[in-house]
Simulated scan of single mutants.
Amino acid sequence: MNLPATGRSVLVSGASRGLGRAVCRAFAAQGDRVAVHYGSRAAEAERTLESLHGSGHVLVGGDLSDPAEAARVADEAVRALGGIDVLVNNAAVNSPHPLPTTGYEEWTAAWQSHLSVNLLATALLSHRAAHDMIARGAPGRIVNIGSRGAYRGEPDHPAYGATKAAVHALGQSLAVSLAPHGIGVASVAPGFFDTERVAHRLTGKEGEAIRAQSPFARVATPEEIAEAVRWLASPRAEWSSGTVLDLNGASYVH
């Protein structure tokens, strides 16, 4: 999909590798300047930055589970880029915690970490970015990375599925709230896609079973998801505000 260069300022959270890196590259390739956020993987984030086309890109580190740090990340991106025209909420945690075999303290900690990063940080970065857009009178876009798991259930990762469902709902609420300011908000709900974090699961019998979930007999690439994010953030996509776009290769339909 060929979209015109926009020269906008883009903040991508959780961009040290995987989908975040692919999203950064997609925006940089069309002439946008990108703030590459990372939590703890500074060296990998540096590699993301070095791989970006063009100039004017910056690194912004910070622990998004801390509300003060989330505000600082957004504010640093605003200062470095002169504002945020596009926010991509990609940062997330996803650790296994099946209820039958998880102790209460571990269960509690899992829910707290998923809620603080997957949901609360998404809300806080959205607040900061939207207020910057409104203050400048600039139309903008917020794109949230949700998940197929919000619909089909995540028995080993219930807090992940629940927080991603909440992210979808948050995006729809903000789409209505922010439309009068020219700000579009949408989400994507990817199925399984190939990244460094899950590469070990795509080998052997488990990998065969995962690929068989889709009638295409494969999983997505991060670049396929990133292309959809780029379109949802484009000036042409205003009418898609409020959308939750399924990107799962027909592995789950509803």
Rank of each mutant, 00 (worst) to 15 (best):
H181V: 02
P222A: 10
T221H: 02
T101E: 12
G182M: 09
Q172V: 00
S173C: 15
V176F: 06
V60G: 06
G7E: 09
T243I: 06
V60K: 08
V244W: 01
P4E: 15
L245D: 02
G184V: 05
R148F: 03
D66G: 07
G61M: 14
P155T: 06
S95N: 10
R152A: 12
A80E: 10
S251L: 07
N248A: 08
F192T: 11
P215L: 10
I225Q: 02
T48K: 06
D63S: 15
L3P: 08
H37E: 12
E238N: 03
A68H: 14
G140R: 09
L170C: 09
W239S: 13
M1A: 15
D32E: 08
G161T: 06
A43E: 15
S241K: 00
A123R: 04
D246Q: 04
L99M: 14
G182P: 03
A91S: 10
A189I: 03
S13D: 01
F216T: 11
E206S: 15
E69V: 10
G242R: 00
T102F: 07
F216C: 08
N94L: 10
L124Q: 03
Y104F: 15
S51K: 11
S240Y: 03
H57S: 06
A162H: 14
L115G: 01
A42D: 06
G184N: 05
T102P: 05
V244E: 02
E106T: 07
A5C: 14
H157L: 15
P222K: 05
V36F: 09
S51A: 15
A35V: 00
I134E: 07
A91R: 03
S95G: 08
S13R: 00
S241N: 03
A250E: 07
H53P: 04
D156P: 04
V219G: 01
V143T: 01
S55Q: 14
A92H: 03
L99T: 13
V188F: 04
R33V: 09
L87M: 09
A186G: 00
L247C: 12
A71F: 07
I183C: 04
S234R: 13
P139N: 11
